[in-house]
Amino acid sequence: TTVEVQGVEYRFDNPEEAEKFAKKMAKSLNLRVELHGNKWRVE
């Protein structure tokens, strides 16, 4: 599972970890998070 934060990609073996990371990043950067296939995008 991939998390893309403002163009930078982070890879996770565990989808739940990816989701937690994406939501945490979105909250700290005041952005929103969307799931596209198996990629979380924070923008």
Rank of each mutant, 00 (worst) to 15 (best):
T1V: 10
T1W: 15
T1L: 10
T1E: 05
T1M: 13
T1F: 15
T1K: 06
T1P: 12
T1N: 10
T2F: 14
T2S: 10
T2P: 04
T2M: 12
T2N: 05
T2D: 05
T2Y: 14
T2G: 04
T2E: 07
V3L: 02
V3K: 00
V3Q: 00
V3R: 00
V3I: 02
V3H: 00
V3E: 00
V3P: 00
V3Y: 01
V3S: 00
V3F: 02
V3N: 00
V3W: 01
E4T: 11
E4V: 14
E4P: 00
E4K: 05
E4D: 11
E4R: 06
E4Y: 13
E4I: 14
V5N: 02
V5H: 05
V5S: 03
V5D: 01
V5E: 01
V5G: 01
V5L: 09
V5R: 01
Q6V: 10
Q6G: 08
Q6A: 10
Q6R: 09
Q6E: 11
Q6D: 08
Q6F: 13
Q6H: 09
Q6Y: 10
Q6P: 01
G7Y: 03
G7P: 00
G7D: 04
G7V: 02
G7S: 05
G7H: 04
G7R: 03
G7N: 05
G7M: 04
V8S: 05
V8N: 06
V8L: 09
V8A: 07
V8T: 09
V8G: 03
V8R: 10
V8W: 06
V8Q: 07
V8D: 04
V8P: 01
V8M: 09
V8I: 13
E9M: 11
E9V: 13
E9S: 10
E9C: 15
E9D: 06
E9P: 07
E9G: 05
E9F: 08
E9T: 13
E9H: 07
Y10C: 08
Y10M: 03
Y10F: 11
Y10A: 02
Y10E: 01
Y10K: 02
Y10G: 00
Y10S: 02
R11P: 07
R11T: 12
R11V: 13
R11W: 14
R11D: 08
R11S: 10
R11I: 13
F12P: 00
F12T: 00
F12R: 00
F12S: 00
F12H: 01
F12G: 00
D13P: 08
D13S: 10
D13K: 09
D13L: 08
D13T: 11
D13A: 09
D13E: 12
D13G: 08
D13V: 09
D13W: 08
D13R: 07
N14D: 14
N14E: 09
N14C: 14
N14Y: 09
N14R: 09
N14M: 07
N14I: 09
N14A: 08
N14H: 09
P15Y: 07
P15M: 08
P15K: 07
P15Q: 06
P15S: 09
P15E: 09
P15R: 07
P15I: 05
P15V: 06
P15H: 07
P15W: 08
P15N: 07
E16M: 11
E16C: 10
E16L: 12
E16F: 12
E16Y: 12
E16T: 11
E16H: 12
E16Q: 11
E16W: 12
E16N: 10
E17N: 06
E17F: 05
E17P: 02
E17M: 08
E17Q: 09
E17A: 10
E17S: 09
A18Q: 00
A18C: 06
A18P: 00
A18T: 00
A18N: 00
A18G: 05
A18E: 00
E19A: 08
E19R: 07
E19Q: 06
E19T: 04
E19M: 06
E19K: 06
E19I: 06
E19P: 00
E19V: 05
E19G: 04
E19N: 03
E19C: 09
K20G: 07
K20M: 11
K20Y: 10
K20C: 15
K20R: 12
K20W: 08
K20V: 11
K20Q: 11
K20A: 13
F21V: 02
F21H: 02
F21C: 14
F21K: 00
F21M: 02
F21W: 06
F21G: 00
F21L: 02
F21N: 01
A22E: 01
A22V: 03
A22G: 02
A22K: 01
A22W: 02
A22M: 02
A22S: 02
A22D: 00
A22L: 03
A22P: 00
K23Y: 13
K23V: 10
K23N: 09
K23Q: 09
K23I: 13
K23G: 04
K23W: 11
K23S: 05
K23A: 06
K23F: 12
K23T: 07
K23M: 10
K23D: 06
K24W: 15
K24V: 11
K24M: 14
K24Q: 15
K24S: 13
K24I: 12
K24H: 15
K24R: 12
M25F: 04
M25R: 03
M25L: 10
M25I: 14
M25N: 03
M25A: 08
A26P: 00
A26I: 01
A26S: 04
A26K: 01
A26M: 03
A26D: 01
A26Y: 02
K27Q: 15
K27V: 15
K27T: 14
K27M: 14
K27L: 15
K27N: 14
K27S: 15
K27G: 12
K27Y: 13
S28Q: 15
S28C: 15
S28Y: 13
S28A: 15
S28N: 12
S28R: 14
S28L: 15
S28D: 15
S28K: 15
S28T: 14
S28I: 15
S28M: 15
L29F: 04
L29M: 07
L29A: 04
L29E: 04
L29R: 04
L29N: 05
L29W: 03
L29I: 03
L29V: 02
N30Y: 05
N30E: 06
N30M: 05
N30Q: 07
N30K: 09
N30T: 03
N30R: 06
L31M: 14
L31N: 03
L31C: 13
L31Q: 05
L31F: 07
L31R: 05
L31D: 03
L31W: 05
L31P: 01
R32I: 10
R32H: 13
R32T: 12
R32S: 12
R32L: 10
R32V: 12
R32E: 08
R32A: 11
R32W: 08
R32F: 08
V33Y: 14
V33F: 13
V33C: 15
V33K: 02
V33G: 03
V33M: 11
V33D: 02
V33W: 07
E34W: 13
E34T: 14
E34R: 10
E34V: 13
E34N: 09
E34C: 12
E34Y: 14
E34A: 10
L35P: 03
L35Y: 14
L35M: 08
L35H: 11
L35V: 07
L35T: 04
L35C: 11
L35R: 12
L35I: 07
L35W: 13
L35K: 12
H36G: 04
H36R: 12
H36T: 11
H36C: 14
H36Y: 11
H36M: 10
H36K: 10
H36V: 15
H36P: 01
H36S: 10
H36E: 11
H36Q: 11
H36W: 10
H36L: 12
G37I: 04
G37W: 03
G37E: 11
G37H: 06
G37F: 05
G37Q: 08
G37C: 15
G37R: 04
G37S: 05
G37V: 04
G37A: 06
G37K: 05
G37Y: 04
N38P: 05
N38V: 05
N38W: 04
N38R: 06
N38L: 06
N38I: 05
N38S: 09
N38F: 06
N38M: 06
N38Y: 05
N38A: 06
K39N: 09
K39F: 07
K39P: 01
K39D: 05
K39Q: 09
K39Y: 07
W40T: 02
W40K: 02
W40P: 02
W40E: 02
W40R: 01
W40M: 03
W40N: 02
W40S: 02
W40H: 03
W40Q: 02
W40F: 07
W40G: 02
R41H: 11
R41Q: 10
R41W: 11
R41Y: 15
R41I: 15
R41A: 07
R41G: 04
R41C: 15
R41F: 14
R41L: 14
R41S: 10
V42A: 04
V42N: 02
V42W: 01
V42Y: 03
V42H: 02
V42D: 04
V42Q: 03
V42M: 05
E43A: 11
E43V: 14
E43H: 11
E43P: 05
E43Y: 15
E43F: 15
E43G: 15
